[in-house]
Amino acid sequence: MKPVLAAAGGDVLTEEQTVTEDALDIPWNVVVHNDPINLMDYVTKVFMKIFGFSRTKAEIHMLEVHEKGRSIVWSGTRERAEFYVQQLHSHLLLATIAKAR
């Protein structure tokens, strides 16, 4: 993208603009999905450990997973989202990353 700017002296300047992926980065969601096996208390404790949630916040997300089938537990950069998914997988939760819409 090369926007053309009129300089004060009448010259025409061309400003190179680099559009980085970060600048345009749409956040990535960490989504936890329901499964019929994982215990509710276990899921709550995993959320508290990985995201530092209070018990109340962790339970809200756990219940959303249980009742609605999924919960977005974190949003941000892709790299960090992948890290959290890896942590969730290490505790055997069904978790994925998805671009926020």
């Binding site: 890896q86 069904l94 994925t96 990353i97």
Partner: peptide, 25 residues
Amino acid sequence: KRIFSPPTIQPDADAEANSEWSEYV
């Protein structure tokens, strides 16, 4: 498949990300 679940699923499936996940994670 359950213990090593993929990091992306439909409708956000990303074959390359899933393949890299299998290889590196």
